[in-house]
Amino acid sequence: MHLLHFPSSPLPDSWLHRVDPRAKLLLVLCVACPCLLLPYRATLGLLPLAAFPLLVLVRSGCPPRAIARAWLTPVPFVLFLAAWHPWLDPSPAWLAGWPGELTAGWVRFWRILLSALVLIGFLLALVATTSAPALLSALARLGAPRWLVLILGFNLRYLALLLRRGADLRAARALRAAGGAPLSRNLRLSAGMLTQFLARTLADSEQVEHALTLRGFDGRCPTLGAGPLRRLDFAVIAAGLAIALLPWAASWLAGFAR
């Protein structure tokens, strides 16, 4: 399963899709460093980073409109988090590359917005070009705690099961509703369906536990091995490092110019 599914087009198979998921994960971790560690005054150095995932996604065959929709969906939430800062901190501040005067609150606002856009973009590129199983496997091989990988994997699998059960219930209701009140306006029916849903998922989880137990599960989760990283994968990791250093370089140049 590709976590981010672009339904309007067949699943592309570009060079980016074929890069080892470990390399792609490391690249995203590299990019996360400047988003978290860059000094506030160098925030605008993040700007060129936002272009990378967009370029990469388009070049690897993902449809631009679907990318834009997925990218912009979380923006209102980010704006909600960032919008308070200009009112909370009116003290003057300096932002490298910004032509005029700014307050520290506005610097924080731009920092939150840009960091979120960059990180979402890179995560989008990661999940759009990597299957969920491959991502989990890469996490395990990069040394993430096994319990974390296990919980993520089972949740992902269980989520699919829950979604199907939920869709079945909704469809069953819709097929016999014959013009009745919408579900949101019929609290009694909604509560009944929710109870059914929970009861079924409980039974499902019990079955999953039985299946695990019967095949010798004892809390560990050994996984199949993977091949070594190739030249392309190392190139992607190197690109990640270069991209991570770019904001620092940009802010240094901006400071130097000033």
Partner: peptide, 19 residues
């Protein structure tokens, strides 16, 4: 459906052997 819990079919089939 509830018996298959690993991310891929191959990993699910190999699960018992690895255990």
């Amino acid at each position: 459906e509830t018996q298959l819990f690993m991310p891929t079919v191959l990993e699910d089939v190999a699960f018992g052997l690895l255990n």
